[in-house]
Design a protein around this nucleic acid. Structure first.
Lengths: 202, 202, 202, 202
DNA sequence: GTATAACCGAGACGGTACGTCAGGTCTTGAT
DNA sequence: ATCAAGACCTGACGTACCGTCTCGGTTATAC
């Protein structure tokens, strides 16, 4: 999502302090003044640098913000507690942690909004923030099948939707209330049910 | 969400043809060029009028677009088929119909993104697009309780989240795939389960 | 310069109170906020009426302001003191009185500026504010010739220019200093000299 | 009157071609369509650039036009012909040349009008266009005094008023007729007279 | 006494310009 | 190759005027 890791050795090296100054500036602006306040100009000013330096690192405003959110996207290994329910609870705990991070909560709606309409960026966003968790979720299901906990399931992605969708809803529309533990339990519960019965039996 | 219906009789009346020309222009731009193309300037040009006429009707770009989406928000009465499952299926059918409308699909992500950070607008959006359906859903649950289909339930809003969240996820991130019937059935199934058992039993 | 005096008897008569309210509003705005503040909207608001009523009286903003200044344009008869010098002194006194009126001082530069480029309006302005005094000045010169005070003069208009030009300069460019009596005496002096000698003798 | 000559070496230098394109555009619009046609928008369009580039150079429309006129303001040294009369004739020739320049004739009335009410801008205008000539005029008088041509004079500025005022009057109100040589001779004549006699003797 | 006509208030309408802000690119001199 | 600085074009923002128009309602005179 960024251009980091360019320095191949030739010319003047990147100023590492700038990298962090920029990241800090983005976060600060996002938290204090909201998504719309995160402009290239203001980030540069707050970071004490110039537009040029920003564009050398990020190709666009969206990339800049996406990168800031990505820093808060845990790369924890897929949970493997031995039971499906334990795995799911842990998974949701991780997801909630991500969505509840103030920077994520402040930025994700605007980011998705700005992405919408551009399939390329949209796909990249999905691949960065959604796909990894979805993939580890699928593996989790497979382990449960292998253990005999649940029967083979033919529509695993809808379960991911039910796990993630309600969380996203709460993050994007704060008027729906806080992202609390009741939601974690309920989504896990629902997922367990869908995984236990064949969907067209229901 | 708009200023329509203002005229108390005084002054020159609004040109109704303009109202529709504007709405049409918004839809057209949204569908052909995407959310970011829906600027006050372009809408005015396409509608064959001026910025002034737009600002007379809508206080901001957000209101303009929200109004266009609201036109596609069905005000159908809460479904009442006699059975909880039938009600839920019908509810989801309505929701999917709304989210699948090309204009809604094209505009909702950007709209929610632009709303984020402004609690007032955010609340208004929620009240306009989310709350009505949520309220009729609660009534639906109550009827099922009265009929003895399900036990009293203490967290009805999480069920609404599980019904709506996954749909929103698919609309906003097209990379997750189309909004198909599998999702309808799965969400209804999950909701039925959550309503049948007490949540902390699960 | 205005449309006053229209009432031919038939319909509802003009509200005379509005006429004065408008004139007062123009003067007030001109004096307190300057020429650029005298907009149709603001005048209407301050006068407690509407644009419509203004446009019924004046065809344009310029006419509105010109009318306000004209109210301060004395229609005193051409002075006739018996001597040329006495006449000239009196004439300059009248001119200074006009140019020093706060409303005139505040409005004339802007008015002439807005007129510039439109020969029709420009001619009307000249005819209204300049020509009358110029004509009575010519008559004054003729009386002096008849009395034998001065020889016949072939370029009387340049004398008018020398009498009026310096006053206008001071009104339009306050940085040149106040419009004081020294200027009156000097201009009269200069005019007397020009009238006494033939110009190509000098 | 402008922001030119800013570059201290840093950053991308101003595009000099733009400077001239803008000046040309202003002159063209002023001459063909008049003062009121000289808007930021139109100048930018005609100059083939953008509003932004204009605002980078001039803080306002007034500054833009003032700058265009200033280009036609001769910086010729104070005339020194050896005789007061010769100096005055030469001075008036220069003034007439300035006021008769089509751009000046087209723009000065509007410019002074827009300035009126803003003492700061008004003073700057006076300092730019009026004061230099006035100062060299004072020096001219002093030389004549030194030569013994005229007695010491205590109100030199009124003579400047009489020299410039009538010219300005003719430029601003074309209905008073063209700015011809008769006016030059008459104003010089009047000035000579005022300088030769003590003013309160007259 | 009832047309008719001009007024009044309110406010919408198409235009045009304003001055600002943002995005993303390019150019310069210096490190 | 990086950095700070800043110019450049593009395009949108929201506001303010202008002068015109269309309403409903109100006086007046004139038939």
């Amino acid at each position: 999502m960024s251009d980091k890791g360019k320095s191949a050795g030739k010319g003047r090296p990147r100023n590492a302090a700038l990298d962090t100054a920029i990241a800090t500036a983005v976060e600060q602006l996002l938290l204090t003044d909201g998504y719309s306040a995160v402009t290239i100009d203001r980030v540069a000013t707050v970071a004490g640098t110039t537009r040029t330096a920003l564009y050398r690192r990020f190709p666009s405003r969206v990339a800049l913000i996406a990168n800031a959110l990505a820093r808060h996207f845990g790369t924890d290994p897929a949970p493997d507690t031995g039971t499906l329910r334990g795995d799911l609870i842990e998974l949701q705990r991780l997801q909630v942690e991500f969505f509840r991070a103030p920077i994520v909560a402040a930025g994700i709606a605007g980011l998705i909004g700005d992405l919408s309409g551009d399939p390329e960026w949209s796909a990249l966003f999905h691949e960065t923030f959604m796909a990894p968790r979805r993939r580890s979720t699928q593996a989790m299901f497979q382990r449960a099948v292998d253990r005999g906990e649940i029967p083979p399931f033919t529509h695993p992605s809808v379960v991911s939707d039910i796990l993630t969708g309600p969380l996203l809803l709460h993050v994007m529309l704060p008027a729906t209330g806080p992202l609390d533990d009741t939601l974690v339990v309920a989504t896990v519960d629902a997922a367990m049910h869908l995984l236990s019965v064949d969907i067209h039996d229901a």
